[in-house]
Structure formats: structure tokens, C-alpha cells
Amino acid sequence: MLPLSKHQHIERLYIEHHGWLLAWLHRTLGCSHHAADTAQNTFIKLLGGSVVTSQIASPRAWLKTTAKRILVDEYRHQKIESLYLNELAYQLAHETPAPSAEALLMVIETIEALSSVLESVSAKASHAFIAHYIEGQSQVEIAHALGVSTKMVQKYLTQILLKADSIGVSKP
């Protein structure tokens, strides 16, 4: 028998597990539309991803993990969007012109990319990164505020850059 192509593999996964995934998502989310969207996005991720589908040992566990990851990303997006808009409304008086939807989306997506890395490091490290590269505080100032050495601040920042690189966030 010829080995199956990638698309044939995905087709088979779809036929065998789509219904199960949908049922699980429906139970978890309690909304059939949201469940259908998420199931669809999970398979789209398979099509576009670099995963070798024939090597997934237990497809259901993999699909469940991927679907969960999609939900977490969605949750982060919603949260950051509302936090940013609130912050914008709080900081700015009402006379400023409303930002365009595209410009808003770009800023929000960038903040999401930053937080997907910053949420996996310590609170001190993420504070150092935000203070230095966003608020423009000097490394010595930050060291003073955190009560650590300047060397330690540099170590935090280095750790974050390497983390971002290994997660693959800063890919163009």
C-alpha cells in the first residue's frame, strides 16, 4: 500500500475525529457555534502547520490540546482587547478622534504577541522588559526599583529574548 499523503491523512483524521472533537467542544463551551468554529480552526491549523500528521501517536489527545490552545489564544485576545480599549478610554479625554479599526487591531495583536512570551517568565523579568523597552526606563533605574543588580536586569532581558526566539513569536 502506498503511504498516504498529508492531505489524505488529514482527511482521515477529519472523518474519524471531527464529530468527537465537536461534541467535546460543545460540552465544554456550551455554544454550538463557538464549538463548530473552534473545531474548524483546529483542523485548519493541521493543514497549515508543520506537524507530520502520520506521526501523531494519539490524534484525539493532539486535537484536544490544539483546540485548547486555540481557546487560550482567543481568551488572551479578548482580554487584551478589552483591557487596551479600557486603558485607552481611561487615559484619553473624549475629544480625541477615534482610532481606526485596523490601527487598533495591529496594536492589540502586537500586545498579544508580547504577552504570550511575557506570561511565561517571572513577574520581575516581565516588569524589567516592559519598563525598559516600552516605557524607556534605564537598566540602572529598573535594577534599583526591583532591588536587584543591573547584571540581573540584563539577565532577565536576555532570558526573554531567547524565550521569544524559541517560542517563535518574532518570526516575521
Binding site: P99, T110, V169
Partner: peptide, 14 residues
């Protein structure tokens, strides 16, 4: 990754 941080803080949506 640093560029991301710098770009987002430099570019206000409006």
C-alpha cells in the same frame, strides 16, 4: 522581539 515592543509604544492608533 524588541522591535515589536518599540513599534507598539511608538505608534498610537490615532
Amino acid at each position: 522581539f524588541i522591535n515589536l515592543a518599540e513599534r507598539v509604544s511608538a505608534s498610537a492608533p490615532s
